[in-house]
Amino acid sequence: MRSYLSYFKLRIITNIQYRAAALAGVSTQLFFGFMYILFYIALYESNAGISAPMSLENVISYMWLGQAFYALRIPVLKDSELLNMIKDGNLAYEIIRPQDFYFKFYIKLYAHRLISVMLRFFPIVIVSVLLPKPYNLGAPTSIGAFIIFLVILVLSSFLITALSILVHLLTIFTIDSRGVFSFYAVIGELFMGGIVPIPFLPKILRIIAYILPFRFLSDFPYRIYMGDISISSGINLIPINILWIIVIVLIGYMVSKIALRKAVIQGG
């Protein structure tokens, strides 16, 4: 356990080095946030009479939260070390290490996500709260909702890492990683409400989205925050969220075992 902890610390320290990149990330996020908001404002302005599934203020808050916690929802955050290992066969060395392969990389990817979100969310939240009226990020509906929002964000960081490492491991079977990644990215984005909020989706897709785990990454926490989902149904959904994390970690762990057995043969 201690070796994992120190590894976690090491990863955090390494990732903090990339502050300049984070700054660039912040500006990109702000830009995209504005862009989406301008689009939705135009859309709502030209359809004044139509009842939309979400109010404009909520959509705008949704977009800002999505940008601020981008690193916690973006499906693909590639880890080149792991991918190169898979490509050139050095994965075999990992088997002889004393730490478990799966958890070691879980920690690495987790640290990466954590630091990217920590370095980025604050400036984005500040800017978006301070913006003039139609463009700003609204306050949370209640303190209770805000607390649940934070809890789910923490959970989502575990979930996204589990998903992410699972996809990394799947590339062992296809070698070239791009296809798997873009496939996963699209499915993930669509069903987490990353492209359009889930209430805007047609009925069939909405049902699928509510079954899949991806909604816990963005749709669910953000809508709790703005009161679009009530606190009580929010609390009811948390166990399902935790269940998903366990299931995906278990699948990932099993895949890592199978994959490593296969990698031995390839390494020769």
């Binding site: 070698i175 070239d176 296809g179 798997v180 873009s182 496939f183 699209v186 499915i187």
Partner: peptide, 18 residues
């Protein structure tokens, strides 16, 4: 990388389709 090309093409299609 045959499998990869196929997955790639499908995923490109999906990306755009989404």
């Amino acid at each position: 990388y045959k499998a990869s090309v196929i997955i790639n093409s499908i995923s490109q299609f999906l990306v755009f389709f989404t």
